[in-house]
Amino acid sequence: MNMHADFSPVETQEPAILIDQVNKQFGAVTAIENLSFHVNRGEIVSFLGRTGAGKSTALNLIMGNMSPTSGRVRVMGMDPNKDFRKLRRTISVGFQTDRLLPWRTAIENVELGLQILHYHKAEIREKAREWLARVNLADAADLYPHELSGGMRQRVSLARALAIDPEILLLDECFSQLDHVTSQTLRSDVSAVIREYRKTCLFITHRIDDAIEMADRILVLGAPARLLLEVSPTPEDRTDRDKFQLLHDKIADALGVDS
């Protein structure tokens, strides 16, 4: 626990994330229909669904940016919408696009969350350097976003999310804008970091490969968001080509897409 920051992580025995019979309507449109699932602490869960399946709405509910029409959303036992500020430092988000601030260098972008959480100045710089090094960007600390490649920018963005040492990391399709090779390298690096630091992670994606390779558990969503399938890939599913394909086909079938 960091004694310098003004907020300490929330301590509770409840699941890190709990979605209980949640419905979300936008006027006549149903975005989420009777969705229930939970994410245990230290678990990496992948949220897989086609575009428009309500994945981002579910993410917004968990972030506390909106409240459900009915049902219960809990993050570390708290209502993320009502207890918005209490969940400071508990949740951090890696977005689909890097969202780096152009007037800040790479290291200053990583520092943003730490500054908001009132870490000490020296500690802010130290932590930001540490996380930039962790994502292999120690030499790019003083470069502005426009001087970085797409993959480097996304690494900075993930360093920014991880630097505040959150309990829960929400990753919203954050590798989908990158080319296949960069995406694969970055995904494996981030996966290693999340496991090393035992973070809880909800990883939203529409790529079946990403979900199988990264998650302990995969939740397949239909549209409007409702649970179609829940699977837990084994290590063999990732290493054995046939098993990987079998699981891939099963998920593709549930999604109704061509494998």
Binding site: V93, F95, T97, R99, G113, I116, A161
Partner: peptide
């Protein structure tokens, strides 16, 4: 709006 959402994800 993306910058604002990113900033707000740290609950400032």
């Amino acid at each position: 709006k993306e910058w604002l959402e990113m900033c707000e994800s740290f609950r400032p």
